[in-house]
């Protein structure tokens, strides 16, 4: 509906009624392009995007040496915990976090209340540059996820898992 107020990724409550998140090729490629570009422009080591439940969405940079699955889950836990603290302080979410280490630094940004953009960088770059590039990237990511959410909520959408039968599921567990 065109008259519907524009909403970002929806509150948790809205998502409950739409418990499935689907990532399509088109949006995935757009997100991946942004992540790749952010690595370059921010001179970062690694950039990744995860959802608030800790599912990895996209990543780029020197990810080979990195257990991104664990990092994703811990980042999501961290964001959830900080969000809980914010609530107790009657604050909105703390949208940015920065952790400084001896060699590696982590910049964590909540994008549109829905996904998390993580940048890992070292002394080859600066926090200022990272912040600047993150700002632009999160705006772009925000509109992609908005479009994606509209797509997922479209009743006529492509449903990738619909072709699977109960027997297929049974077979997975008969060994």
């Amino acid at each position: 509906m065109a008259t519907e107020p524009k909403r970002v990724f929806g509150s948790l409550e809205e998502l409950m009624t739409n418990p499935q998140m689907v990532m399509y090729e088109e949006e995935f490629n757009q997100i991946q392009a942004i992540v790749v570009r952010l690595v370059k422009e921010a001179n970062a080591r690694v950039v990744f995007v995860i959802d608030k439940n800790g599912q990895e969405i996209a990543k780029a940079g020197e990810t080979d040496q990195l257990d991104t699955t664990s990092l994703a889950s811990l980042t999501a836990g961290n964001i959830a915990a900080t969000g809980g603290m914010a609530k107790l302080l009657r604050e909105n979410e703390f949208t940015t976090q920065f952790h400084e280490g001896e060699r590696a630094n982590i910049h964590i940004q909540i994008v549109g209340n829905r996904v998390i953009l993580v940048v890992i960088f070292d002394s080859k770059t600066s926090l200022g540059l990272v912040r600047l590039r993150v700002k632009k990237a999160s705006e772009e990511l925000n509109s992609i996820f908005e479009a994606l959410l509209r797509k997922v909520q479209d009743p006529n959408r492509e449903t990738p898992f619909a072709e699977i039968t109960d027997d297929d599921i049974d077979n997975l567990f008969n060994d």
Partner: peptide
């Protein structure tokens, strides 16, 4: 909330 990636044909679920 399950997460389906059409491109990599992956489905992720949380238990």
């Amino acid at each position: 909330m399950s997460f389906i990636n059409v491109l990599s044909r992956e489905i992720n679920c949380k238990i």
